[in-house]
Amino acid sequence: MALLLCNKGARHPFYYEQLDIDLWSIQELSYVIYRYPVIIPSEFVDHKLTAWLRDELNMGILAARLEQFMMAGDDGNQERLLLMILRESNYYTQAEISRFESEYKKLKNIERHVFLNMLGDTYLRMGKYGRAIEAYEESFFLNTDFNVEMKLAGTYVTVMQYQKASDLYEEVFIATGSDEALKKLYFISKLEPSVDTIEKYIENIGVDMLANWELLYNEVQAVAEQSDRVREIHEIYQKNRSAFREHSKIMILKWKREYRAKI
């Protein structure tokens, strides 16, 4: 995590499965709680966590207090436990902790499909695209919301599953007549010409609209071509073709690992 260890770090990290990360300090633990409350499970603070606080961070007093409240088992138990950790970390102000408390209370009272939509948004920001897809799919199954379906389609584009994305954008367009869904179909046809769903709806696209989409696509492509990664590969190719081939093998393996991690 891009977070400084404000206190002494643990000898062994606490692994948080929901984020697939290792936590090394009370500040990192607090950051996760504060930043991602929507993915904090109802039994997040358990004996495994208190043992880590006691054994790895030498925070025996906090661990004992948490365990005492865990034994009480009242309805607001988990919320109280999370607030205790946030206060003990000294990483957030009291005003920030109060805001967290208010938002956390809201999460417990929202409808399931709304929660899942928020969960999908959180995973999307984190780059956990497979989990985002699962959350959006379940949300849409529970409540037909075309905004959620658009998000789902966009996430499929991100992981280069263009046919699935195209099918969803087409559903949205048929149901709502959305120009945005039509535009996405057009962009997919540019990214992957074999997915040519847009051809069925060419008559729905005005000349000016098409010209604007083409301009937008070209602008985005030009920006992408100037990225640091593209420039690095181009420079290697220009200097040494043999080195480029070796570098390409390494980069392809790296990209494959990154892709698998995202889905």
Rank of each mutant, 00 (worst) to 15 (best):
L53M: 01
A175C: 05
I198K: 03
W255H: 15
E28V: 02
A153V: 05
S227G: 13
S42N: 06
L49C: 04
I198W: 02
Q94Y: 03
L3W: 06
P13N: 01
M84F: 04
L142V: 06
L4F: 07
G127I: 12
A211N: 15
D75E: 15
L215T: 13
F140G: 00
T155Y: 01
V195D: 04
S25R: 08
T50N: 06
L23M: 14
E79A: 09
K128G: 11
K105Y: 12
N204M: 11
E219N: 14
S89Y: 06
R87S: 11
E219W: 14
D121V: 03
D22V: 01
L86Y: 04
E43I: 08
K256Q: 10
L119Y: 11
D55R: 00
M118E: 10
P41M: 06
N7F: 04
M126D: 07
D196C: 05
L191G: 08
V159G: 06
P37E: 01
E111Y: 10
C6Q: 07
A224L: 12
Q18G: 02
R99A: 15
Y31F: 08
K128F: 11
V32N: 02
L49P: 00
A51V: 08
Y16R: 01
R125I: 12
Q27S: 10
N218C: 07
A132S: 04
E192K: 10
K256Y: 14
N218Q: 09
L3N: 07
Y34M: 01
P193E: 08
Y104D: 15
R65S: 05
V32H: 10
I26M: 12
L215H: 06
Q27M: 08
E235F: 05
D74K: 07
V157G: 07
L49N: 00
I188K: 07
E149D: 12
D22G: 04
R229G: 02
N143M: 11
E235C: 14
H234M: 08
V223Y: 06
T158C: 14
E96Y: 04
A224C: 11
I250P: 04
